[in-house]
Design a protein around this nucleic acid. Structure first.
Lengths: 198, 198, 198, 198
DNA sequence: TATGAATGAGGATTCATTCAT
DNA sequence: GATGAATGAATCCTCATTCAT
């Protein structure tokens, strides 16, 4: 059971740098975070940062992949769960994505900001999407089975992802106390909006 | 019939500056756009820009209000339309918001980017929201009438706004040819997800 | 009698910067002279330097032209002198070039170093050579009249220029006391090496 | 017959490093060539380079001596040639210096650039000049015999060296096709300029 | 109002050198 | 000897802002 990872070989420094970078990026934004500040607050010499990452852009890109990989790991379906009914698996993934973001708000803000930034190329997004391929397969499965109203995978992907984002934003902004019941209502809102009712 | 406007007093320069600013902000981002470049590409001396706007931050804020006002103007319901059934008015607003973004992609990107930026304070957002108060009232009306499944105005507001954003993104990214039928399906997807079915 | 000049419009700062730059470049070399040091020693803010010159490279280029122009002005033949015999005019130019370098040793070192540097492109050299076009014409005149042994203008140009450089180096390095008699011997050495003796 | 050499003890690495260094220095300049790049392009770890040379300055100095030694070896007069007439020996040395530079253009550019650089101290130049002592002796011999117009060895040394440099530059810049006849004319131009004609 | 030269703090990046393995 | 990760001072350059005209 060999899990390949971007961070696998990394003993220390690389991950240390990225973890601190996320912290600062999220708090202050990309532009507002200087490499000097990252160096100081991580306790790692600025030259060392440049030894591990070609420049600020590469640092951001690598950090994006690092976070996306963690996201993908959380969101996957285990072997035993494969047998569950479609809606249950769908809910599982939806809820796991949501709880991942709630557990790691920084990762959420980091990822969310990057989606609206030219700092992440389409190429990089595609590379990152491999980490949560299983979730994309789930959408495809529904299309094959003719479960959805709209059968365009891009539309569905965005729509579902946006629903998770919205739930997360509301929770993190404390605009609503998100207990289990409310969360499930939210999920049902999403489900209802895409599924063909018999 | 007094229409108050951010741009009212402005004869020329102010609007010229903001229009060019939007162009550059959208193409290059806020940080990447320097005041010097704005001066050069607008043909207005840098000192003059500072006569009209205290600084870069104020320029961004004012431009945000300028765009938001235009958005609000488009999205409003006319007097004659007031008598239409709720769903029709709801659809009208939804479609108008969508077409506004499609007509002015720059305004869309500008607004969308700012939502994820610390450059716009909550205070400013609240100020801007007055321009599309009518749309918020529409949501409130639905709540009063008990039409929705979920009655939290914040959740509803975000959810609906996100649905418009998603449709716009898909169209502008040319991920889908958005003809009238497809667009209406998209609207129905949104409507179905929030409305209490009898 | 309108003399066009690179430095014509310049009131102050541009020339101040270039004069100080030459001083530092000659003493320390191009790479060893930082823009910060130039700013400090000239008393001109670093931003101002960048306001007048796009970057270090342009500063060096412009300074090269500035010096070359001064060189050209010194080396030219006045109207009255046009009537002098060829050898006298030739000597005039040779001696003037030499004394220019002796009067402005910094200009000499600056120009000499740049000749062996990739910092000055061929294009720029050609541009600069316009300033001493009259001297090049003098060489051409001798070729037409069949005075030289070797009739290649490039060879002649280099050879003559090298003779001036050599005399200058020896004088400035104080390897020899260069009185008028010695200098004239030096000139004759050059003359003899290129002229067809009847 | 013990020939001392800078490169004598060197098995491999030292010379490998210097050869690659010359390549880079000539192509890019001294400052533009970083030790890291030298390490990468030579395939020798940066730490190893520092084992063989104290620092960058020493590397340049040693490389200067390495090249100067090669130059000296080429330019020397063999035992059998000692009996030749003065002018023939003079020509032999002049031509050999020229062909050395043509054969090893990199060595030429390297040496030529360093002559105008503060990186090589007078002390080092003197040290290097031992490698071509025989050529300097040839000049002295001419002075003793009263062959020259000008009897200053420094003037003569520079003048002659400059003549070789000029010929080399013209050839390498392809400003002239340098066949044997042209080259000999060039040599005669030099000879004529310094020799007392009976 | 309008102009644009002048300012200098701050940012990204480079690179010679060291040292533990 | 050989290696290359780690260091941080130093460098070039940008840019929001001011102010005299």
């Amino acid at each position: 059971m060999n899990i390949r990872s971007v961070t696998e070989k990394t003993t220390d420094k690389r991950v240390q740098i990225m973890d601190q970078a996320i912290e600062l990026f999220v708090t202050q934004g990309f532009q507002q975070t200087s490499m000097a500040q990252l160096s100081k607050s991580s306790g790692i010499a600025i030259g060392t940062i440049y030894h591990h990452f070609k420049g600020k852009d590469e640092l951001i890109e690598q950090t994006y992949l690092y976070v996306t990989e963690k996201f993908g790991a959380r969101v996957s379906i285990s072997n035993e769960e494969t047998e569950l009914p479609f809606k249950d698996r769908f809910r599982l993934v939806w809820i796991r994505a949501y709880t991942f973001f709630i557990d790691y708000p920084n990762y959420f803000f980091f990822k969310d900001t990057l989606n609206y930034s030219p700092l992440v190329s389409q190429e990089l997004k595609d590379k990152g999407s491999k980490y949560y391929q299983a979730s994309l397969d789930l959408i495809a499965e529904g299309i094959e089975k003719g479960l959805y109203i709209n059968n365009n995978p891009v539309v569905l992907g965005r729509w579902i992802y946006n629903s998770i984002i919205t739930a997360t934003q509301i929770t993190l902004n404390k605009e609503l106390v998100m207990d289990n019941k409310t969360l499930d209502e939210f999920f049902e809102m999403t489900w209802r909006s895409i599924i063909n009712e018999k």
